[in-house]
């Protein structure tokens, strides 16, 4: 016991952190670094050959890859807007005194959160299949046709996540003191004005956070198109992760798959950061409220 008390505490602090940090480094940090490292090589006749940034130069000219990136950004925007409108509307409706059976509705809307994406895709996929769904046959609609596929997947993702976002909004609304609403009512606000002028501005930090989280999720789109490809032909370039997956395991071109992974990750983080900075600037100009800056932190 020659160490000082302070030194002992330092040691014990790191002892508590070691299990987490070891796993964190081994299974998240190292793979990320390794992804970058292996993207600097190519596989020539079973030999790894260092080529510098040549994979990146190839990737920048890879029209199929950029097509898939644009497609998934389009998907992220469409899905994000629809889900946002739906989940805010549901949260606001459930927050009025007009809604009945609130606990029941909250439970039902949130239920898909417990259903794995794979099974959501299977259920909707079968409902989309003409042989199983006479309604679609009668209407001459085919959600699995190449033109409608994007919207078919938008619907699956919205079904999965709208209730989750709604739950977050409801929680932020109930966290607010009722004094503010009472003041609004005293000033003669009706329910609609109350929602638009008081509740929506209060929700703004949570909305920003959910937009960014939903965007990060959308960019990784994989499960839904991968599952649906058993029911309908789907191009590998529908989403970058489909492309990367087939690159790694179909064509076994791991270095190039790693290159595309790194680029996709960089694009996602870049767009998220830009979104955060833009909202921070707007919010900063509007008010100096602390919680906004904190929300943007994550």
């Amino acid at each position: 016991m020659t160490q000082s008390g302070y030194g002992n505490r330092q040691v014990s602090s790191w002892a508590f952190l070691v299990p987490f940090l070891l796993l964190f480094l081994a299974f998240l940090f190292v793979p990320m670094v390794y992804a970058f490292y292996s993207s600097l090589f190519i596989n020539r006749m079973g030999q790894e050959v260092f080529v510098g940034f040549r994979n990146y130069l190839n990737a920048f000219q890879d029209a199929a890859f950029w097509g898939s990136v644009l497609n998934v950004i389009r998907y992220a925007v469409i899905q994000g807007v629809i889900m946002l409108v739906l989940s805010i509307a549901l949260a606001l409706l459930l927050d009025t005194r007009y809604a009945r059976f609130k606990p029941f509705f909250r439970l039902v809307y949130f239920l898909p959160y417990a259903v794995p994406g794979v099974f959501a895709s299977i259920m909707w996929g079968f409902l989309y299949s003409k042989p199983l769904d006479p309604l679609l046959q009668a209407l001459h609609v085919d959600p699995l046709s190449s033109g409608a596929l994007l919207y078919a997947i938008v619907n699956i993702a919205t079904w999965e996540w709208a209730g989750y976002n709604m739950t977050l909004y409801i929680a932020s609304l109930t966290g607010v003191s009722s004094e503010m609403y009472e003041a609004g009512v005293m000033d003669g606000c009706n329910e609609f004005q109350l929602a638009w002028y008081i509740k929506v501005p209060l929700l703004r930090p949570t909305i920003v956070m959910t937009i960014i989280l939903s965007f990060i999720g959308s960019m990784q789109l994989f499960n839904e198109p991968f599952l649906l490809s058993a029911l309908t032909p789907i191009s590998q370039t529908f989403a970058p992760n489909l492309d990367i997956y087939s690159m790694a395991f179909g064509l076994t071109n791991l270095p190039y798959a790693a290159t595309l992974s790194v680029i996709l990750g960089a694009i996602t983080i870049f767009i998220s950061c830009v979104a955060m900075m833009v909202t921070r600037l707007i919010q900063g100009a509007r008010s100096r409220r602390k919680h906004v800056a904190l929300a943007v932190e994550v």
């Binding site: 793979p31 990320m32 992804a35 292996s38 790194v262 996602t268 983080i269």
Partner: peptide
């Protein structure tokens, strides 16, 4: 302790990394 804030922010930042980016290198490792 020294490095506490840095460690915490490193962990926070990693929440932004898309999960599937690490999956294929994970297979290799």
């Amino acid at each position: 302790f020294r490095g506490r804030e840095a460690t915490f922010y490193l962990i926070l930042l990693s929440m932004m990394i898309p999960g599937t980016v690490a999956a294929i290198p994970l297979f290799v490792i």
